[in-house]
Design a binder for these strands. Structure first.
Lengths: 266, 266
DNA sequence: AAGTGGTCTAGACCACGCG
DNA sequence: GCGTGGTCTAGACCACTTG
């Protein structure tokens, strides 16, 4: 195929030496974005990088810089050996107490798949966030969140042993994980507080997310409280390329289905 | 100065042809991160890029790829003409109904600075999110959020004219903005629902945030409801490099001051 | 003027997916 | 084998800050 829509005139020259001399890659991004919106649809593959860079009269590295931006915005997916595809709009992923899975506060629904469960002394950083002394025993459940067949998040849930007095320590692996989660349910969770920040997936999480290391992720840190005390801390890393985190608050009964494109509302 | 801590042996060779042949830039990132954590402190400047790339025996572009990662994680700040600095830990920014400014639901506190206010027909995308017909009149208040002297966010608050029947239309600029905000207060807000996703700052927001275009941002979309109807939509872009968004829920009285480093809890 | 990060180039080779 | 994106190089020039 030829994929005519991309034309050289769009970017070359840039004639008007007015403006503030926008970088080439940024201008290129804008042109690509416009063309994608008007001439392409979800899942379609763009011309390959060598082709595009030639067509726009720039070095391949410069074109890639533009594609990097679009990928960060979740507008592109690049697959080695395949090509560059127009991405589907981001999926809204509920991250609220009442909505994940079956409605438990630690959202133990079927969306979550336990990877493993370990118990050991807390690192300095972890002890600090849990309000423990360094070296105190902590259960750690690693699990992934799978939505519509796609792994969208990896999580480490840390629970001080002291918070689960009735847990049989003999069981191991998935059984123990189940035990920890069930016990945590039983303890009851009064409330929670969360934070969201940008991060990159290290090798371990990256593998779980089926992405290369360095993949941008939204890091959600949740503190679960029980009886006024901190009962658990979860660190969840959501794939930033495909996820839009939603925090529903139950009082709202607005039934607007639309999605806001940040760009479109500027 | 010499900045000895960075040593060549850390990365060159990588001898063991075991492992999965980690990319150089990723390994470099790890080495830099470790050295920064142990030998440098907040605000300190690293050796310049040409120096570092020479010291590690890689091309400057490769070194920059590693620095790009660290910058995305908020560990580095690069200033043209100055150098590369170790960044301060991210600031926790409350994004909850009760915590911003003076406690109003649309957080009208002194942290927010109105930039301008316009009224005009809604674009197709905006009309959809507000549940209006395209072309319906909408007030748009642009403002920035300044925390401790730093502009951390830019926001566009969209309110359908129909939702504010008592607004005098004659006033303009800041007066109108104040009017819109006050009227919105008066209407009352029952609840709200939010989403967070990754984006990049376009030129307009980038300027407000005092960052170059393409800067990664956390896009927070908030829907405000009043009497069961959607009364307003706010699209806020927070600087991803410096901000950690916090969603406090009032029931939690946990007083743990610590911060979780995602990396440290893996 | 000197030093810094930011942009851009032209080319090479590698790792992956598919026919 | 071939085409794709991913990595890496060596070098050039520009834009910005500071003395």
């Amino acid at each position: 195929m030829d994929c005519r829509p991309f034309r050289v005139e769009d970017t070359v020259g840039q004639g008007t030496l007015a403006a503030v001399a926008e970088p080439k890659y940024w201008h290129l991004r804008t042109v690509l974005l416009r063309t994608m919106d008007t001439e392409f649809s979800t899942g379609q593959v763009l011309p390959n990088e060598r082709e595009l860079s030639a067509r726009f009269g720039v070095a391949r590295a410069t074109l890639r810089q533009a594609l990097d931006q679009l990928e960060l915005e979740g507008r592109l997916v690049r697959r080695r050996g395949i090509g560059t595809l127009v991405a589907a709009p981001r999926v809204g992923i509920p991250v609220s107490g009442r909505e994940g899975g079956r409605g438990s506060a630690v959202h133990g629904g079927q969306e979550w798949k336990v990877v493993d469960c370990t118990t050991g002394p807390a690192s300095a950083a972890l002890a600090r966030t849990l309000g423990l002394a360094e070296g105190d025993q902590v259960h750690t459940v690693r699990r992934t969140r799978v939505v519509q067949g796609v792994t969208v998040a990896a999580e480490s849930l840390h629970v001080p042993s002291a918070a689960l007095p009735h847990l049989a320590v003999v069981v191991d692996g998935n059984d123990r994980a189940r035990g920890v989660l069930r016990q945590l349910e039983r303890v009851g969770v009064d409330g929670q507080s969360r934070s969201v920040e940008l991060g990159v997936a290290e090798s371990a999480e990256a593998a779980l997310l089926e992405r290369p290391p360095g993949t941008p992720v939204l890091v959600v840190t949740t503190q679960y409280a029980a009886a006024g005390r901190l009962a658990a801390v979860a660190v969840s890393t959501y794939r930033a390329d495909t996820c839009k985190l939603t925090f529903g608050e139950s009082g709202v009964a607005v039934k607007v289905a639309g999605e806001v494109k940040a760009a479109a509302v500027s």
